[in-house]
């Protein structure tokens, strides 16, 4: 190939991000450019919050960021994290990109890097060692929830936050420092929750969704020949890539669910109708606060929210 993009990534090598998403990205890039551009994946160069600096300064050409790891930097990413949306990660990721183009772009929160995809993992559910059957039982639990909307929802449910990075989740649960975690179904496999958090409390649409972005170095992109830039912009970057990555999030969620069902002693408790109603009320409050935050950042928050809601419903 004429050009090789160096990708810096985190998460375990076997995690869907590295085992499926980057290979998909590579496949799309190679196909669009007839093999003139390819990639090389590098793991463990720096922790997640460092990735944006690395890409900005050219230590890597592309990377993946989880917006919640950098508190204070991203506000608009909270829009897609809100509970209450119904639909797959694929639908959410496509809607997210479209809403970004229309409403979120102007906030310039990714300034300094080229944004090439936005996506979200599947609905985050609660995983605990002791079974949780009602939403009231969440109050008083010590839960590991990432920052952003997840944290707001946890607080609204009366849970106490335990702050550990994802790779430390297993240890934290095994030593009972936390009663549970809120993560998507895929992490039951990816982070071995089947061993330490045998019970899932499942809320349709999840307690939140995590927001991710694929980013690229601006100079590296500018240095590519014009025809390659054009074809990448048209066939890979933006909505096409966001859609494909969203699909993979759905796929690995299925694998996590299958593993749970196949593991003895694991159980999935669906939230009752009444609990779903009660959660809707909580979600409503969180949403109001978050939309206010977004509005303060200069975004037409309500319109953006309505757009995602209707795009997902129509998907």
């Amino acid at each position: 190939a004429e050009h090789t993009l160096i990708i810096s990534s985190w998460a375990p090598p076997t995690h869907g991000i590295n085992a499926l998403m980057w290979p998909k990205f590579t496949e799309m890039v190679e196909e669009a450019t007839d093999g003139r551009v390819t990639t090389e994946l590098k793991l463990g160069i720096a922790p997640p919050p460092a990735q944006m600096d690395l890409v900005m300064d050219g230590a890597a050409d592309a990377s993946i960021i989880f917006h919640g790891y950098q508190a204070g930097r991203f506000t608009t990413s909270k829009l897609i994290e809100l509970p209450g949306y119904e639909g797959s990660a694929e639908a959410a990721s496509v809607a997210y990109w479209r809403a970004y183009e229309k409403y979120l772009k102007d906030a310039e929160e990714h300034r300094g890097v080229k944004l090439i995809a936005l996506h979200t993992h599947g609905p985050a559910q609660m995983h605990t060692s002791e079974p949780v059957e009602t939403i009231d039982a969440v109050s008083g639990l010590k839960l590991r929830i990432p920052g952003g909307v997840g944290g707001d929802v946890g607080a609204a449910l009366g849970a106490t936050g335990i702050q550990v990075p994802a790779p430390k989740v297993y240890e934290t649960l095994a030593s009972k420092a936390a009663d549970g975690v809120v993560m998507p179904m895929e992490s039951r496999k990816g982070f071995k929750l089947t061993e330490v958090a045998q019970n899932v409390y499942e809320m349709p649409g999840g307690l939140y969704r995590g927001s991710f972005a694929f980013i690229m170095n601006e100079d590296i992109f500018a240095d590519l020949p014009a025809d390659i830039q054009k074809v990448l912009e048209e066939e890979v970057f933006g909505e096409p890539l966001s859609r494909e990555i969203g699909k993979i999030w759905d796929e690995i969620d299925q694998a996590g669910r299958a593993e749970t069902e196949a593991t003895e002693g694991n159980a999935i408790n669906a939230a009752s109708e009444a609990d779903q109603k009660a959660f809707m009320a909580i979600a409503e409050e969180v949403r109001a606060t978050v939309l206010e935050e977004l509005a303060a950042a200069g975004v037409d928050a309500q319109a953006a929210y309505d757009m995602i809601k209707s795009e997902m419903a129509a998907y």
Binding site: D53, M56, Q70, A71, G72, R73, G112, G151, G161, Q163
Partner: peptide, 20 residues
């Protein structure tokens, strides 16, 4: 440079909001 960039982006800690 990196510290001032974090300042420009408004990076803070999760719970206490201490600027990084």
């Amino acid at each position: 440079v990196l510290s001032n960039r974090a300042r420009d982006y408004g990076d803070v800690t999760e719970y206490l909001g201490i600027p990084t």
